[in-house]
Amino acid sequence: MTNDSYKKVLVAEDSSVIQNLLKKILLFENCKITSAKDGQKVLDIFEKEDFDLIIMDINLPHVDGLEATRIIRASNSKNANIPIIGISGNAKNLPESDFIDAGMNDYMQKPLNYDKLIELVKKYTN
């Protein structure tokens, strides 16, 4: 199953449009994307599969992105330290410390800067 030539990225984002967009853009970085539409699905998928990176929207239904990150960090999984990049619709409303305290490695604000996204993906997967 595992193929070292590509990176496995879990994208947690409730909009399928943004999911498709991220899929297309991350193709440039040779990423294989798995999508989850809410925080609970992220946790379910995280338990069963290995990933190189999680890109996590904050504003997710059921379990939000910050909470999902806290649960992952507190878990006993061998992947508990996986890099997590947060995406927020309004980073300005949340202090940076909220993202970092929850355990995220980095975060980006919408509108997404696609160059920065690629840069971050490179940084955390190489």
Partner: peptide
Amino acid sequence: RILHTIKGNAASLG
């Protein structure tokens, strides 16, 4: 929550 999603998506697509 939905308005927030629309806000972010719309911004990301210009």
